[in-house]
Design a binder for these strands. Structure first.
Length: 818
RNA sequence: GCUCGGGUGGCGGAAUGGCAUACGCAGGGGACUUAAAAUCCCUGGGGACGAAAGUCCCGUGCGGGUUCGAGUCCCGCCCCGAGCACCA
């Protein structure tokens, strides 16, 4: 490099453009008048004390590159950012440091803001938000009230998951294999009065919309995760009459009504309300002992699958409506009260769990479906669950019917004879939103002895979280706010008598279930979201985030949006038109974790290589939707790539490079690159887009081409990845304004193909040569040319050609017999 | 156990059923330099034969199959990762 050429120095370029962007408000679209609004959203971060890690940066860079690309395609892109700053994480960390979260969080947010600025995100900072801001959580509380108004928020006493370390209730979603999702402690069960949202009322719609392409275009893996979570199953409710109790019936839920004739006993959950009714004098003592034991166990232990079956006989019998025969009713904790009707018909011949139970307690096992070639009376060593092609046996008039048909036929018979009906069940549970903690929005409810649970009037919102020093949680099962009588004693809004505030705060997932509605309307304090702004910007056009939120955040956000839609407050019921899950970054082949000490701090890399190099590297190291392996050794490649473009820009400034002649090869490569990059950007295939740009750079260097127009468009195409760098190159090229207000390069389809093509010649599918011909050459000519190739002749010698395959523009294949 | 991903050089990874290993990293050789870094050029799956040019064989986790042709499609396995897990 000539000594008088200025070299690329990110330490100079990057701060320069941060200042320019801020000063010129480059990243602030006109929210009231943008003609082609495009809402580009990424999952907002939790501002941890450690700062942004490289995984966050990977996620944000990919989302940002997409937003910048869309903007260069002429859309008015709104790319907001904010902070999900309430919650147990922040509170626990504050406790550890002996700080108040209200002190800690602003500090963390300042650090995140610095880092997010340095990475060069196209963020509309004027609309940044924090969920901890009373101007924000006022509306989080308002959302709670909207649900309350519609009867979708209710209070229930029930067994809940209790984390002994975090000292709070956890949603089932937050319990992973019996342990707290956040701290890993084994979860216990407690009985507490909690607030729930009736998300189960929406299970069907939440499921059905997933398959509606007019509403949702989501990553397939995320859709699948939501489907599994909602867990629809189709079956039937069957009613069993109890012998000797004329008014007592036991409804059970089954997905296999076809096996009704094989139901040899019933099992009800220990908490089932009929447990006491069905118990006889002889069995009372043993039943009471069993039920008490079950109650002492926590919910999680009861859900561990392969425990040995336990249970107790009630002493009662029920009539199987199909056979008319009495079958015993048992109590066992493998039946869950929360699912279905809390009672099952046990079919040990065709269900592994029922089989294990029947074996343990010597209950009869009967086969009612036989697979092809299998005798119904074959030894009963295990349950036959898969009966896809089986036929009915031991089932009276249904005998010999294919099992799949019997499911429908038995359900129809049940309905006709009044023994039951077809029924759909969902695995989804209602959403418990109460948290016995401090660092969250207080639930806006006041308890009055006369009026009950009274919502705080909307004009009194927000219910400010008081700045108490003593916010440490304890084992009492009530929130720290309950220790602050001066705060919670208030008059009842209805009758004015002394009343008490709810002292629990709401789940962090409620904060994040509506933040995307707030971004376009952050300056309004008299409404959660402005109708006109919302109409212009929502639903979100593109949402990018981690699949770890596939079933929590994304489902809750959909639910809240659907409720607001039903309340007439939103015109759409699905908030995210397109969602793409990004992958995860690992370090040198292993997971990053604090304990391994291999968490990559992006600051060091930004300082050493520049944010643009780091961004380009992150987008290059693997497919965005899969993630990749961050290796220190690899980053020099992308830096070299940018250095070479810088040099091409320097050379292109020479007056001779304007409208210089472009070699045919370069011209074609240029247009092919433009075509490929645009297509790959849209699919988020950033690694291959960058590879294509690298190929163009290599071609330009090999052919010694620095034609101004080609270099200018190269700079435009690298801009989504290296925005500061591209702006600087743009300016050096003498271009006016921000490169992000320039139009994405167009390509000419006719110039993406060459006239001369290479046709591969195969003999029996093996490559034996090739010929260069004009694209217009006909098949016969190509065949003649192919036969002249030395390598082809060698392999054809003494053989007979039995077939000739011609794939236009690609290859020919001679099939020979020896 | 169930569901969804995935298995390709030394490494990260490319490949609408059509030249496997694009692009990048690391490596080897060379140029420049007092030297090093940086930069630039060449090379780059394994094996056999050959002085070389080259020729041939084998190669995308394993075993079958479909096809003129399979990393790609089908069947049966193995392994890794993620999620769910007594959901009747």
């Amino acid at each position: 490099m000539d000594s008088n050429r200025p070299s690329y120095d990110p330490a100079f370029v990057e701060p320069k453009w941060h200042a320019r962007w801020a000063e010129r408000r480059t990243n602030e679209p006109d929210l009231d008048a943008a003609p082609r609004p495009y809402y580009n959203l990424m999952m907002f971060p939790y501002p941890s004390a450690e700062g942004l890690h490289v995984g966050n940066l990977f996620a944000f860079t990919g989302a940002d590159a997409y937003g910048r690309f869309k903007r260069m395609q002429g859309l008015n892109v709104f790319e907001p950012i904010g902070f999900d700053a309430f919650g147990i994480h922040s509170e626990n960390f504050a406790l550890k440091l002996g700080l108040h979260p209200a002190e800690l969080i602003p500090r963390n947010i300042a650090n995140f803001t610095r880092q997010l600025t340095s990475m060069g995100g196209m963020f509309a900072w004027e609309h940044a938000l924090s969920t901890t801001d009373p101007r924000y959580y006022k509306w989080t509380q308002w959302i709670f009230l909207q649900l309350f108004k519609r009867g979708l928020a209710y209070r229930k006493k029930g067994a809940v998951n209790w984390c002994p370390t975090d000292k709070t209730v956890l949603a089932n979603e937050q319990v992973i294999a019996g342990a707290c999702e956040r701290c890993g402690s084994m979860v216990e069960t407690r009985v507490l009065e909690q607030w729930y949202f009736r998300i189960t009322d929406y299970a069907g719609r939440l499921l059905d919309n997933l398959d509606d392409p007019t509403r949702m275009d989501w990553s397939a893996t995320t859709v699948q995760a939501q489907k599994n979570w909602i867990g629809r199953s189709d079956g039937a409710e069957v009613v069993f009459r109890v012998v000797g109790h004329d008014n007592t019936q036991i409804p059970v839920y089954t997905t296999r009504p076809d096996t009704l004739f094989g139901a040899t006993f019933l099992v009800i959950a220990p908490e089932h309300p009929l447990a006491a009714v069905l118990t006889t004098v002889a069995t009372r003592a043993s039943v009471e002992r069993y039920v008490a034991d079950a109650a002492a166990k926590d919910l999680v232990t009861r859900r561990v699958g392969d425990r040995e079956k336990s249970g107790v006989f009630t002493g009662s019998f029920a009539i199987n409506p199909a056979t008319g025969k009495p079958i015993p009713v048992w109590i066992a904790d493998y039946v869950l009260m929360e699912y279905g009707t809390g009672a099952i018909m046990a079919v040990p011949g065709h269900d592994e769990r029922d089989f294990a139970f029947a074996t343990r307690f010597e209950l009869p096992i009967l086969r009612v479906v036989a697979n092809e070639g299998e005798h119904a009376a074959s030894p009963l060593e295990h349950a036959v669950v898969d009966v896809g092609h089986g036929r009915m046996v031991n089932s009276a008039s249904f005998d010999d019917m294919p099992a799949a048909d019997a499911k429908v036929a038995v359900t129809a018979w049940l309905e006709r004879d009044g023994h039951g009906k077809g029924s759909v069940q969902y695995r989804l549970y209602d959403w418990c939103i109460s948290r016995q903690r401090y660092w969250g929005p207080p639930i806006p409810i006041i308890y009055c002895d006369d009026c009950g649970a009274v919502p705080v009037p909307e004009e009194q919102l927000p219910v400010i979280l008081p700045p108490v020093e003593d916010f440490r949680p304890d084992d009492s099962g009530v929130s720290p706010l309950a220790r602050h009588a001066d705060w919670y004693h208030v008059p009842c809004p209805k009758c004015g008598k002394p009343a008490r505030r709810e002292t629990d705060v709401s789940d962090t997932f409620l904060d994040s279930a509506w933040y995307f509605l707030r971004y376009p309307s952050t300056e309004f304090d008299d409404r959660a979201f402005d109708p006109e702004r919302t109409r212009r910007w929502l639903p979100v056009d593109n949402y990018i985030g981690g699949n770890e939120h596939a079933v929590l955040h994304l489902l809750y956000a959909r639910f809240v949006t659907m409720v607001l839609h039903d309340a007439g407050l939103l015109s759409f019921e699905e908030p995210f038109r397109r969602f793409r899950a990004h992958g995860l970054i690992i370090k040198e082949g292993t997971k990053m974790s604090k304990s391994k000490g291999n968490v990559v701090n992006p600051d060091e890399y930004v300082a050493r290589w520049g944010a643009d190099t780091l961004r380009t590297y992150l987008m290059f190291l693997g497919p965005y939707q899969d993630g990749g392996d961050f290796r220190d050794a690899g980053i020099s490649g992308p830096r070299r790539f940018l250095d070479r473009i810088w040099e091409l820009v320097t050379d292109a400034l020479h007056p001779d490079c304007r409208d210089a002649e472009i070699l045919q090869d370069v011209l074609v490569k240029w247009h092919q690159t433009k075509k490929k990059v645009a297509a790959e950007m849209d699919l988020l295939h950033y690694n291959t887009a960058i590879a294509a740009l690298m190929e163009l750079v290599n071609a330009l260097r090999e052919q010694n081409c620095v034609e101004y127009g080609v270099v200018r468009e190269l700079v435009q195409m690298v801009a989504p990845f290296a925005p500061h760098f591209a702006e600087e190159c743009w300016e050096r090229l003498g271009q006016q304004g921000s490169i992000f207000d320039s139009a994405w390069p167009e390509f000419d389809e006719a110039l993406t193909v060459t006239d001369e093509i290479t046709v591969v010649i195969q003999v029996n599918g093996k490559v034996r040569g090739n010929v260069n011909v004009s694209r217009r050459t006909d098949e016969a000519t190509i065949r003649e040319l192919a036969l002249e190739e030395a390598g082809v002749q060698r392999h054809l010698a003494g053989k007979t050609i039995t077939k000739f395959v011609y794939v236009p523009g690609r290859l020919v294949n001679f099939v020979v017999a020896s």
